[in-house]
């Protein structure tokens, strides 16, 4: 979907941060707990491991929830969103408990009747074997579909409508666009597609190449 998470090429972020070699894994103690809680919340809310559903929760966050408490803040918020989607928690349950933890006396919402998706992955992880042959060949010219998808997708906006060349065929994989919504795995062939910077950003762009992994349905032939 078109949201805050699809950042490639978007302006206005300022300079990048210089790397620090001694940076701790978690800068603040709460972040390690938010990290683990987000993983576990996602499992509880999905009835299994579904990384696509978690990424879709991340991309549905608004700008404040996505950015203001950083990476692990956004993980915490995505975990909460998945838990409320599945009615494991009522909306506002976390904030009400948080207020009580700091000494306020607020009424916490009742626990709703859970509505966890009927989800059963056919194998561990995202890779799947397929009987059908890939539709595109290494070296073939392909175009990324120019579509705006209302649900989850891993087709970034900045490559849509642009033409590249298939560089490699990768292992087939569960299609995030349906799996994120618990609508089936629909495995597809995956391609590393190579784009020229001037195709993406115009004739004045700094010359470089870029590869993006594309699920088969994200691509169309140029011939």
């Amino acid at each position: 979907m078109d949201g805050i998470a699809d950042m490639g090429g978007t302006p206005g972020w300022g300079p990048v941060h210089s790397p620090r070699r001694d940076e701790p894994v978690f800068a603040e103690p709460w972040q390690r707990r938010a990290f683990a809680l987000a993983i576990l919340s996602s499992r509880v809310a999905s009835g299994g491991i579904n990384v696509d559903a978690f990424r879709h929760a991340l991309e549905r966050l608004d700008r404040v929830a996505y950015l203001d408490d950083g990476y692990y803040g956004r993980w915490l918020n995505a975990g909460e969103l998945m838990l409320t989607d599945s009615a494991i928690l009522a909306p506002g349950a976390i904030d009400a408990r948080a207020r009580n933890l700091r000494g306020e006396h607020v009424e916490e919402p009742p626990i709703p009747a859970p509505a966890v998706p009927d989800y059963a992955p056919t194998a561990v992880g995202s890779l799947r074997s397929m009987d059908t042959a890939p539709a595109f060949a290494v070296g073939e010219c392909v175009r990324a579909r120019d579509v705006s998808v209302p649900g989850h997708t891993r087709l970034p906006r900045y490559v849509r409508g642009h033409t590249g060349v298939v560089q490699d065929i990768r292992p087939a994989s569960v299609l995030p666009d349906t799996n994120a919504h618990f609508l089936g795995e629909n495995p597809q062939h995956v391609y590393s597609v190579r784009f020229d910077s001037r195709e993406l950003w115009g004739a004045d762009a700094d010359p470089f190449a870029l590869t993006v992994e594309m699920y088969e349905s994200y691509l169309e032939t140029t011939s």
């Binding site: 603040e28 103690p29 709460w30 707990r33 938010a34 809680l37 576990l40 919340s41 509880v44 966050l61 608004d62 404040v64 929830a65 203001d68 408490d69 692990y72 803040g73 915490l76 918020n77 975990g79 909460e80 969103l81 928690l89 506002g92 349950a93 976390i94 904030d95 009400a96 408990r97 948080a98 207020r99 933890l101 700091r102």
Partner: peptide
């Protein structure tokens, strides 16, 4: 999501503790 009815954003550390307690 990080806001409540009062519009106040609660600190993520406190919200993390709350979530851990609710699930545990």
């Amino acid at each position: 999501m990080t806001t409540t009815g009062s519009g106040e954003r609660l600190p993520p550390a406190l919200r993390t503790e709350a979530l851990e307690q609710l699930l545990t």
